[in-house]
């Protein structure tokens, strides 16, 4: 799943700071009211669907037994939270994601820097890179299982593969996009290679790197769920697949909620976390 890459207007001479224009108190009220109205509007449809879902489940409009009421999903979630199963699964999945992501994203960044810095490395490795990134990450599953066995190793390896490609691809784009004039400036200041990397290339590529790191983490979360479905004894993906086999519909729904909530948290969290480094170049995210 290759990056839905935001098109970047390469504005070399962008203002370094977008001054935080504080809304004047007089204008603040209508804006707050506008936001409240927007939230209310946005909540309308989900609430209606929730009511419809509850009614459909109670009166068995759809498939006997396959649709459980939202109330029951909530109870199941509360129960799993109380008896620690939820925490255990969640921690197991999170650990795999963090270890694999750290390894994969770091390797991706290093690869991008190496390919961006050296024409030789680029010529040798980029063709393979562009072919390999066309293979859906999930297709590596059998290979990862063969190489690393059914234990923790293959799940972490899968996450690392999933994290590697978006991190490398976006960082590469960012590094490639550094205007030649800026590199020239570095040369005329007699920057060493390392200085040019640290003072010119990385700061310029930072917004793209941030985009890559965010996509990598989303991808990692997606893959860990899949890997846990294939072979695991603990984890969010494992719990969902186990529940499906036992026709525990409420647990499956609870799992969907959790995977969605984590996905949302990753997306919003990293967007906010990276905002200081992405805002200056006007990157649309």
């Amino acid at each position: 799943m290759q990056a839905v890459k935001p098109r970047i207007e390469a504005v070399a001479a962008a203002a370094p700071h977008r001054s935080g224009v504080a809304a004047r108190p007089a204008a603040a009220w209508p804006r707050v009211r506008g936001q409240a109205a927007a939230v209310a509007m946005g909540a309308l449809l989900p609430l209606a669907l929730l009511v419809l879902w509850q009614l459909a489940a109670r009166h068995q409009w759809v498939g006997s037994g396959t649709l459980v009421a939202p109330r029951q999903v909530y109870d199941t979630l509360a129960e799993f939270y109380a008896d620690g199963t939820l925490g255990q699964d969640f921690r197991a999945s999170l650990r795999r994601v963090l270890v694999g992501y750290a390894a994969g994203a770091a390797l991706g960044l290093l690869f991008a820097i190496a390919a961006g810095a050296s024409r030789r490395v680029a010529a040798a490795f980029l063709p393979s890179f562009h072919v390999l990134r066309q293979v859906p990450v999930i297709a590596w599953l059998p290979l990862a299982i063969f190489l690393a066995g059914f234990g923790e190793g293959f799940k972490i390896a899968m996450v690392a593969i999933a994290a590697f490609f978006p991190a490398a691809l976006n960082a590469l784009d960012g590094i490639r996009g550094v205007p030649p004039a800026l590199l020239e400036l570095g040369r005329s200041l007699c920057f060493s290679r390392l200085q040019a990397l640290r003072r010119v290339v990385l700061p310029y590529a930072l917004p793209d790197i941030a985009t890559g790191l965010r996509l990598s983490l989303s991808r990692s979360w997606m893959i860990v769920v899949a890997a846990e479905m294939i072979a695991s004894t603990v984890g969010v993906g494992y719990r969902m697949n186990w529940a499906r086999q036992l026709f525990q519909v409420d647990i499956v729904f609870a799992g969907v909620l959790i995977t969605g909530a984590v996905g949302l948290a990753i997306d919003i969290g990293l967007r906010l976390a990276f905002r200081p480094v992405t805002a200056w170049r006007g990157v649309r995210q």
């Binding site: 899949a226 969902m240 529940a243 799992g255 995977t259 969605g260 996905g263």
Partner: peptide, 12 residues
């Protein structure tokens, strides 16, 4: 919001 559910999570 729904867009953020990874589709592997929708498999079951």
């Amino acid at each position: 919001a729904l867009r953020q559910i990874p589709f592997t999570g929708l498999v079951p």
